[in-house]
Design a protein around this nucleic acid. Structure first.
Lengths: 238, 238
DNA sequence: GACCTGCCTCGCACACTGTACGACTCAACT
DNA sequence: AGTTGAGTCGTACAGTGTGCGAGGCAGGTC
């Protein structure tokens, strides 16, 4: 695409594409998201983003200071997909589970977010909206001040940890299952069987036939356990 | 066509060393750890590693297939620092808390590990040792089969999520506290105060005076909540 | 008309990355 | 003495983020 041959004087220089909407943050983030969702963090380079936008490689830098800022914008954009059911509908617990599942689903759709979480404080409009709503939800549970902070971050940390491990699990090679891994390791595992019987029994019984159901069961188990633990710490209803 | 690619580091024996302390996996991983701990993932480049070892830039590639494999070795090396107290001493709960705190402390010492967790299955000797010991610990709690998997991964996911967010929090700029952040954001926050009163009250009351104590309190709150939730799901002792 | 002054785009260059490859050294074995 | 093979290294290639300056365009002022 870059073969802009030394234009002869006779050929009129082509209309420099002003018909398209000029470059803007929205379109930049749109294109960045396509690359990120398709190929992950390493799939996004400023040059590829430039060609995707039919623009010069460094034109993006007029609208965005650097790549980190672009990633911040992209991260906040996908935070728009996270919803928090208001606690008045079904109580704080329904609200918390709805939030947790919504966040997990978003991470599954955009696995590249995992590395970015917590990299710097998320203060974009969507992130603050989600944060505000979760604080309201956990406030409806009776938590205040430090306990509110503790309860909220327990759920967030668990969801990010769980969904993150799930996501990076699948990110490796889309085709390979855990059974394939076990197959490929072969002799290494048989040697392991002698030294660590507990572990290799677990591998044989659980990991060897891992399915999507196990992922689901694991998350609901973890989430309900977390919420149960929070329930015990909740101040008595007023 | 490329049939030899997907073999993992652990299956291939270390290339036999000749005589003197020339380059070896141990020294390579040592030097890599120095760079990683000092400057994080981006601080480790093969060229810097080469000069650190007083060797050519690409000499490392004789001992290690690529950079990912080197990171796998480094990750397993630091997993040696994680200990799991045997459950017969103080019960499964003491064992689980000891493991969780040990893992968290390791992540704090080596924040670059967070990105690597779950990237690919951790099957190095130290990782498998830790995994085996934790399975034994949670098995002592009475969990079996799928529940064992669920219970174990709940704790792991929470610890990685919590410690990961703590670690990347500090990784930004070692000097800046959260109060500095709030200070720097200034007018953005005052505008936020009108739209989202709950959130800005929380910022003012909790985050503005964040100290190390809050981090500690948050983790113990989260961990005890998680273990309480697990206790409720534990099969009755026999 | 001419001229200036914003905003915006883009080509080039720089310093850096991971790593493939072939040339080399040098001890050990036949 | 000749051969082998482990181990090291310089060079090269394709790719990265991004600083810089040279422009082009629209609108405003003489």
């Amino acid at each position: 695409m870059a073969e802009k041959a030394p234009v002869s004087v006779w050929t009129r220089p082509e209309r420099p594409r002003r018909d398209q909407p000029t470059l803007g943050r929205d379109q930049i983030v749109d294109a960045a998201l396509e690359l990120l969702d398709a190929e992950g963090l390493t799939g996004l380079s400023m040059r590829r983003l430039g060609t995707r936008l039919n623009s010069g490689a460094t034109s993006v830098y007029w609208h965005v200071a650097n790549k980190d800022e672009l990633l911040e914008l992209a991260l906040d954009r996908v935070m728009a997909e996270v919803t928090v059911p208001p606690p008045d509908d079904g109580g704080w617990r329904a609200s918390a589970t709805g939030y947790a599942r919504s966040l997990r689903a978003m991470i599954h759709r955009h696995p590249w977010t995992v590395t970015l979480f917590g990299g710097r404080p998320m203060i974009g409009p969507n992130a603050t909206r989600v944060l505000d709503e979760t604080l309201i939800a956990f406030g409806a549970a009776g938590f205040t001040d430090l306990d509110l902070e503790y309860a909220w971050s327990l759920v967030v940390d668990y969801v990010i940890g769980a969904a993150g491990s799930e996501a990076s699990w699948q990110r490796g090679q889309p085709g390979t299952t855990s059974a394939d891994w076990i197959e490929a390791l072969g002799p290494y595992l048989t040697r392991l069987a002698e030294e660590r019987p507990t572990l290799s029994a677990h591998i044989r019984d659980v990991w060897a036939n891992e399915t999507g159901d196990i992922l689901e069961g694991r998350f609901t188990f973890g989430l309900t356990s977390v919420l149960d633990g929070l329930e015990a710490r909740r101040p008595p209803a007023r």
